[in-house]
Design a protein around this nucleic acid. Structure first.
Length: 268
DNA sequence: ATGCCTGGTAACACCAGA
């Protein structure tokens, strides 16, 4: 089973790119972020014609998340992250698919630092951590995939010293990510590529893609039983080089049907 | 220290992204 996350940066503006990639990569499940479209303008028919069932949580102009499933209808389990009823930004959607809980998230950017946007980012991260801990306690297979807007370590930034005071790399945000992992989640890309420089985003500015001046922002967090099934984790970097493409590249994992290795702790 | 580029919304420019 192949599961992908992709910040499309406008689902209608990039629809041709999205459909081309769906056809070539043929993922079973896709988490999309930055739809930049209200619910009524989600391109459900085109996505259905491509063979995917979908659920979405849109918003005018900004944000927006969706989950697609090939030949399947995602069963909606949640729209919006708990913990703040006044939060109107569409940044979280969740579905049950094939016995798994799939959480699709778009964590706030947080720039400029310092300021209210950075505070909102940290608060959102805290709400995510509280909810993620609840999901782990359910003891069902869970994947939290999406654009986390954080480079977890210096290995995830082309030039770390330039990003020290940026909201994507501030120590508070890296610490929040580290603490989240500490609950028992596995960062899929890093688990299979422990020392490789892997990026999922390249700025439109300054020929960033041509220079490979990238950032690793899109992550898969796997609950222990999903981590035991992880066989591959990659980035479709070539898609970033297409015309009218997103500034993020699709990132994906492949899971085996059954566990392929023991759990690190308390393995059965 | 800043803009670079891009889409969305609106409208002869701004915001937000990262």
């Amino acid at each position: 089973m192949k599961i992908a996350t992709y910040n499309v940066n406008g689902v209608n503006g990039r629809l041709a790119v999205l459909l081309q990639w769906l056809e070539e990569a043929s993922p079973d499940i896709v988490c999309l972020q930055e739809l930049k479209a209200p619910n009524a303008k989600f391109p459900a028919k085109a996505i259905e014609a491509a063979g995917y069932g979908a659920i979405w949580h849109g918003q005018k102009s900004w944000n927006g998340v969706a989950i697609l499933a090939r030949g399947n209808e995602p069963l909606l389990t949640r729209k919006g992250l708990p913990g703040d009823p006044d939060d109107t930004q569409s940044r979280y959607i969740e579905a049950a698919i094939e016995g798994m809980v799939i959480g699709c998230l778009y964590l706030p950017n947080g720039n400029p630092y310092p300021g209210p946007k950075f505070d909102y980012k940290l608060a959102w991260f805290e709400r995510l951590a509280i909810y993620a801990a609840e999901l782990l306690e359910l003891d069902v297979p869970v994947i939290l995939a999406g654009d986390y807007n954080v480079m977890p370590t210096e290995l995830d930034v082309y030039k770390p010293e330039r990003w020290i005071d940026d909201a994507l790399f501030r120590v508070e945000v890296r610490e929040a990510y580290k603490q989240l992992l500490g609950q028992g989640w596995t960062d899929a890309i890093r688990a299979l590529h422990p020392s490789e420089r892997i990026y999922t985003f390249w700025d439109y500015f300054r020929n960033a893609f041509g220079r490979n001046a990238g950032l690793r922002l899109d992550h898969f967090l796997l609950s222990p039983d999903v981590a035991a099934r992880l066989v591959k984790a990659e980035v479709d970097k070539d898609v970033r080089g297409w015309d009218h493409t997103s500034d993020h590249a699709p990132t994906w994992i492949e899971l085996s049907d059954k566990a392929i290795k023991r759990r690190r702790k308390n393995g059965r």
